[in-house]
Every structure is written in C-alpha cells, then in structure tokens.
C-alpha cells in the first residue's frame, strides 16, 4: 500500500505541473498588471518594481524562476498586500478555512449519513418524505442565497447570532451552517439512494433469509455498501470545503483563503492567484488519494494498482 501511495504521488506531479503551467501563462497573457493603478506610477519606480519582481525578464525565464521557487516551497511575495508573502497569507488564512470547512464537513457527514439511512429504512413514510424534501431544498438553493438569508434572518432580524465577523464560536455558527447544509442534503440523498439499492440487493436478501438480526442486516451488510458512494463523493468535496468558500467568507466577513483567488485575480496579484491554484490542486490530489485508499479498504474488490 505504501508503494501505491508513493506511486500516486509521483503520478500527481505531472498533473500539478500542467495546472501550474496553464495557470501561469493564462494569468500572464491577460491584459493589465499588478502595478496598473488609477494614477500611473512614476516610470522610474515602475522600472524598479519590474526589476525587483523580474518582470523585465522574458516570460519563459519568469516561469522557470517561479517553478524553481515553487519546488522550494516559496510561492513568492504578494503584489497587493506588499508586506506579506503568499506563504504568510496562507499561514494565517488556511487554519481559519480548514477549521470552518472541517467542522462543516464532519457535521454534514454525520447528519447526512444518518438522515439518508433513516429515510431509506423508512422508505415512503413521512420521515422519508421529510428528508427527501429537505434535501431537495438544500441541493437546489445555492450558497450565495442561503448565506445572506441566514445572515439577514438570524443576524439582523432576530439578533441571535452575529451577522458577520470572526472571533468567537458564535461567529462560526452561521458560516458552518451555510457550508454544511447543502452537503448534508447531497450526502443524505446519496446515502438514501445507495441504502435503498443495498437493501434490495441479493446479499442483503441472503442475510435476511438467514435470520440475522436487523441491526446486522442493516448495519453490517447494507450500510457498508451504501457508504461507498459517499466516500467517493467525499474526496473533491473535502478539498473544496477545506480550502474555503468565496461566498461564505465574503458574506460573513471571514479572514479565510476562499477570497484570495477572486481578489488576487481582480488585482492582478499573480503570485496570490498562482498560490491559490497550487494549494487547491494539492488539496484535491491529496483528498482523492485519501478517498481511494479508504475506498479500497472498504471494498476488497478494489486493489491498489
């Protein structure tokens, strides 16, 4: 298995390389630059700045320099927040995003699987209809609607929780709820469908035919099969949740990394944009790997190869 993980990481390097390359040139070929301010800078200062950031060199040289730095874990200085390096920015922002996303993901997983399994076991009863109905809501309504509505209702109108900001646990409730809700819905729906399918499967029929108590039939035979699609879903989702959400962080004013990309792109902060791309790609790669290992552990038909 160790060899498998190593192989997968080796396989991820070219993917990462492609991503970095495309992103790098796409950003650079776009019009505008980080120093195009409303009031043009003094040409001399401009020249100095360009030299300092290697902009006077040909693009391919800059690319090679960037790759070299990247290999050493250096993502370069931020152009829009001059006092910080990109690594610094992630060092402060990432823990916030991971904290929010991690809690939201855990809640979504527990609640979603529970609700989905419950609905499947009580298929076509009011419990089932409730879960399916709520799930449809959660899947359909986008985050950028839920977030401001939560903030408006619980924060502004009811005043129960802070409408935005960061610091105490109360500040985390609404963002986590916003992040978790759609995931609960999706996971519940996935689990429900998979559980129903598993309950209809021949091997569950066998378990029932052999008089195994229902906690064994459901808990041991049906749910393990039903959890497999959820595990597959979890990889990209975990990566997305842990790297922060632009919408949630914007609306609730949270100092996470979700906003970096859009801010960086708008401000032509090349290094920040590249840094975000690299960090997110790494998360995606790692979580896909984690999920594959987990999946193979749950399903003996899948082998490491």
């Amino acid at each position: 298995m160790f060899a498998y993980v190593l192989r997968r990481f080796a396989g991820a390097v070219p993917t990462l390389f492609i991503i970095v390359t495309i992103a790098f040139f796409m950003i650079r070929l776009a019009p505008g630059g980080p120093f195009d301010l409303e009031r043009p800078l003094d040409p001399l200062i401009m020249k100095n700045l360009e030299r300092a950031y290697n902009f006077d060199k040909p693009l391919w040289q800059q690319y090679l320099i960037y790759l070299g730095n990247l290999a050493q874990g250096d993502l370069g200085p931020s152009f829009t927040r001059r006092d910080f390096s990109v690594v610094d920015l992630f060092r402060t922002g990432l823990p916030v995003s991971i904290q929010l996303g991690g809690i939201a993901l855990s809640i979504a997983l527990v609640v979603g699987v529970f609700l989905g399994a419950l609905a499947a076991l009580r298929q076509n009863t009011w419990v089932d209809y409730m879960v399916v109905g709520t799930a449809t809501f959660g899947i359909t309504i986008p985050t950028f609607v839920i977030a401001p509505v939560f903030s408006l209702f619980f924060g502004v109108m009811m005043g129960w929780l802070p409408a935005g900001g960061w610091g105490t646990w109360q500040h985390m409730v609404l963002p986590i709820a916003t992040l978790a809700l759609p995931q609960i819905a999706i996971i519940a729906r996935l689990t429900r469908g998979a559980t129903i399918e598993a309950l209809r499967s021949n091997h569950v029929r066998t378990a029932r035919a052999y008089g195994l108590p229902s906690y064994v039939v459901v808990g041991v035979h049906a749910l393990r099969a039903a959890i497999l699609p959820v595990v597959s879903y979890l990889g990209p989702t975990a990566a997305a949740l842990l790297t922060g959400s632009v919408v949630v962080e914007t609306i609730f004013g949270i100092p996470g990394i979700g906003r970096y990309f859009v801010q960086g792109a708008l401000g032509r902060d090349y290094t920040l944009v590249m840094g975000t791309v690299v960090v997110i790609a790494c998360f995606v790669i790692v979580f896909n790997l984690v999920v594959d290992v987990l999946y193979a552990w749950l399903d003996p038909r899948v082998r490491y190869d």
């Binding site: 993917t15 992103a23 796409m26 950003i27 776009a30 019009p31 990309f261 792109a265 790669i285």
Partner: peptide, 19 residues
C-alpha cells in the same frame, strides 16, 4: 480526465476577469 482534475471554475474566473 486531465481537464477534470484542473480546478476549472478558477479558469472561468480568470477568463472572465481578464478578458
């Protein structure tokens, strides 16, 4: 597959921002 593994939404944003 390769295109899939790219964080594509980011490229949309880049595209729109820049062009």
């Amino acid at each position: 597959d390769v295109l899939y593994s790219l964080p594509f939404i980011f490229f949309v944003i880049l595209l729109v921002v820049f062009f």
